[in-house]
Simulated scan of single mutants.
Amino acid sequence: MHRKREKSDYIVQNVDLAFDILFYIARRQYTKLKDLEEKFQTNYTNLEKILEVLIIRGYLDYNKRKKIYSLGIKNFELGHSYISHTEIRKQARPFLQKLAEEFQENVYLATRSGHEIVYIDSYEIPRSVVVKSRVGRLLPMYASASGKVHLAFMDKEDLEEFFREVKLEKFTENTITDKNLLLKELEEVRRNGYAIDNEEWEKEVRCISVPVRDYTGDIVAAITLSAPAFRMPFNLVHGKMKDSFKQASQELSEKLGYSKEIQL
């Protein structure tokens, strides 16, 4: 009995350590083995086995070239299940519907996942020509309107880390891959309160996005409309559409407890 208890304790400790590793990497987004060794002060062989299991089960990814660990897709599956019951999705739903019906286009709720954006809900309009549903998809932050919203209001240190870790690759001829040009656009997003994806992720697809803040003032999501570019002329985007989306941004953020006073 004594040996069984020892084995059980050992397994429980490893399970506990596995969770600690996941949350540690989630906060840092990318981590090297030496950082994990220094942080958890555990046997190297034991740590390597735990990491191997997490990789096999899809909870961690390992970049062999850079020798870094990051969260795997399985965490999204768990998160997606949880998100379906969280307040923000429920509170955002009427706004998605209202905007989708006003402009007769698909409207999405997106949030940050590491250095990418994931779409977690939508209200979609049945039309003969539509943008393929983006729910569950991961998009690059710098080439998506919702991603630019998050980048624009990111802390300076986090933004510097983003540029260190993310290679600005070209997806279309409009993708911004120059750091200085991207920083200039992010300044405009902060000033204007909304972001545009002008066929930067997908050709012939244009998007507008606004931030959603919680009671702390942090941006926790973005409301995004995606449509064929020919149905989104810039006079509409920067006119009526922008006004409606900024109003929705303000009202939804207030429902989540946000007040401009907390920024003072």
Rank of each mutant, 00 (worst) to 15 (best):
E160L: 12
E157K: 15
P126C: 06
S133N: 15
L256D: 05
V220Y: 04
L54Q: 01
F103Y: 06
M1I: 07
S226K: 02
K49H: 13
T172P: 11
A248R: 00
F245W: 03
S146W: 04
G79F: 05
F234Q: 13
D16E: 15
Y258L: 10
I176C: 09
R231L: 11
Y62L: 06
S249Q: 04
D197W: 03
I73Y: 14
E251N: 09
H115Q: 09
H115C: 04
S249Y: 02
K98Q: 14
N198T: 06
Y62W: 14
I73S: 13
E254W: 06
G217F: 11
F76S: 05
E160T: 09
L36W: 00
K39N: 08
Y258G: 04
S113C: 07
F163E: 08
K184N: 14
V53K: 14
L33P: 02
E254A: 15
E165G: 02
Q104T: 07
F19D: 09
G193W: 08
V135M: 00
A195C: 08
L186D: 01
Y30S: 13
T172S: 11
V107T: 02
K167A: 12
D121K: 01
H150C: 06
T86I: 11
I11K: 14
M232S: 04
L183A: 07
H150G: 01
K132V: 12
A222L: 07
Q263R: 14
I68K: 03
S146E: 12
Q97W: 05
K260D: 11
A221T: 12
L182H: 05
T31R: 06
I21Y: 08
T175C: 11
S84K: 15
I83Q: 07
Q247T: 14
D9E: 15
N192V: 05
H2V: 13
N75G: 06
E77Q: 13
R5Y: 12
N174W: 08
P228F: 08
I176N: 05
T111M: 15
L186M: 09
R65P: 00
E6T: 11
E165C: 05
F19C: 10
K64P: 03
V135G: 00
L264S: 13
P228V: 14
L60T: 01
H2A: 14
K132G: 07
R231D: 04
